[in-house]
């Protein structure tokens, strides 16, 4: 199907994109890899009047060693994250989860920044950022600010980004050889997760991020707290869905999602070496 008409603006820098967003206000949307936005536009679930294409902002395509974290430019494609030796060595959970995003064609176009800025609870990448305790960097007309991942996802496709802000960088803590696991339950290979779980062992704690367990990407806070309080992995997994309000759809009822969250969290904790 063919999207509604729009005006097309190509930005060659973050600054140019911010200026275009500021000029067009609510009517404008950024276009990165287009693999969430174009499908929505084809069904006319989104009808932006202006698209600001940042796909050519090469300054925002990088993966750098930032000391205690990896700094990843927002326009870096899934395929480049997945195959990066630096990511595989220092943030193996991110590399693994990224390799489960869609199919190779999707990963040749889609970007890490688009995956995060879209704020989709069904997306795999936010669960990784929650589990690892990542930081998001945004740039707007009044400068650059850092946003902790726990303050970023606000509601259904809603994030802390202001309308004239662009996400520029994702900072993922380096975890070296610490235990981790990514569990994704779906019915066909390329599909989105019905439920997914990211687990990352951190210094003195365990981070657990859930996919598709609420209207927004969500942390399994009750399970994390149970582990801190000395519960076994199996007992902690039982409370994984506690603060979540999963939705029901063709694939799964809310109850089935809660069940999956428990089973997948237990498997993930076991694979990550948490007993």
């Amino acid at each position: 199907m063919i999207p509604a008409a729009f005006d097309y603006v190509r930005a060659d820098s973050a600054e140019a994109a911010i200026a275009a967003l500021a000029e067009h206000g609510d009517e404008a949307k950024l276009l990165a890899g287009g693999h969430s936005l174009i499908p929505l536009m084809r069904f006319r679930l989104a009808r932006p009047e202006v698209l600001v294409d940042v796909g050519r902002v090469d300054d925002l395509k990088y993966i750098r060693d930032g000391g205690d974290h990896l700094a990843i430019g927002a326009l870096t494609r899934h395929m480049d994250v997945e195959t990066s030796e630096l990511v595989q060595a220092e943030a193996p959970l991110l590399a693994a989860a990224t390799s489960h995003v869609g199919d190779p064609q999707v990963r040749h176009r889609g970007t890490i920044g688009g995956s995060v800025a879209h704020g989709d609870s069904a997306s795999d990448i936010p669960s990784v950022l929650i589990a690892t305790g990542a930081t998001l960097v945004a740039q707007g007309p009044s400068g650059v600010r850092e946003i902790a991942v726990d303050d970023f996802f606000e509601g259904f496709l809603e994030t802390a980004l202001a309308a004239e802000e662009i996400l520029t960088e994702i900072r993922v803590p380096k975890v070296g050889g610490a235990g981790w696991s990514f569990q994704k339950f779906n019915r066909r290979a390329q599909d989105w997760a019905i439920v997914g779980v990211s687990v990352q062992v951190l210094n003195g704690s365990v981070g657990i991020g859930l996919v598709n367990m609420d209207t927004k990407p969500i942390r399994a806070s009750a399970a994390e707290a149970a582990l801190v309080g000395g519960s076994s992995a199996a007992d902690a997994a039982e409370v994984a869905p506690d603060s979540c309000e999963p939705t029901g759809d063709l694939n799964a009822s809310p109850d089935f999602r809660r069940h999956l969250a428990k089973v997948l969290t237990r498997r993930a904790l076991e694979e990550a070496g948490v007993s």
Binding site: R10, H35, I38, Q105
Partner: peptide, 12 residues
């Protein structure tokens, strides 16, 4: 590289 040409605009 392989891409799905239905999920790109020609201008891209």
């Amino acid at each position: 590289e392989s891409v799905k040409s239905c999920t790109m605009f020609a201008v891209q």
